[in-house]
Amino acid sequence: MTTSLKHINHYFWLTLVALLMGAPILIGIWASLLPTADIAAGHLTSTNISLNNYIAAIQTTPVLRYMANSFIVAILITAGQFVLCTLAAYAFAFLDFKFKKQIFALFLITMMLPFEAQIIPNFQTIRVFGWLDSYAGLTIPFFASAFGVFMLRQAFLQVPDELHEYSQLIGLNHLQFLFKIVLPYSRSTLITFGLYMFLTHWNDYLWPLITTFSDSYRTTQVGLKQLQAQDTFSNWGVIMATAILILLPTLLILLVGQRYFKKGLNTGGLKA
């Protein structure tokens, strides 16, 4: 076999596999453009394509409200984690204090405890605080993240000693050092961290499922379930359009942030 034939063969299989992997999304997008009547009759090859399902989804369902809620929740959690994890990671990277090892181990331990095992008491806590069905209840429990602390600490440790010494020499205090040197130096990790956290919490399901009770606070993923449950005869066109709408920000972030994710994987091991 000649080299070019080999290549054609290679690309043929690659394209086939890529199409298979992408099929669920591609078919979903296609279905979202078809009238439900055509889908229900099994005419998937129909050519009556339009954006009507999207218009219907936006006009007749609160999907935009759900998306706004998810956006607020994901941004709040990312911001909250950014502040809290930065502070904690700074302490572990640059400060010396009593029980450092033990406290570090304490953070470590939380990564072994599944959130699923904490939902009952957490629900009761939120309930007592009066935070059911609120942004506070949806976000504050996630403000601390042992994983985030690890990832940022790892990045902070890369800050050269000389910079640290120099900053102390010219009399920078902790916050100045953090803001003027550590954060800019770790920007790539911080971007990875931010994108990753946003994506993770955009996709949150279980917690919003049990703590939201109205469309005012319901987020996209549980909103999708809500719309599915409110539907009594499988209005496929609109359901697909809603799912694709919810998917768009995810795809956007993946596309823009892909090289950061890859870098993050190589240095920190995301999703640990």
Partner: peptide, 13 residues
């Protein structure tokens, strides 16, 4: 901005 957002949200909440 992020820090301010966090603080404001805290207060609002």
């Amino acid at each position: 901005t992020m820090a301010v957002i966090a603080v404001i949200i805290g207060l609002v909440v």
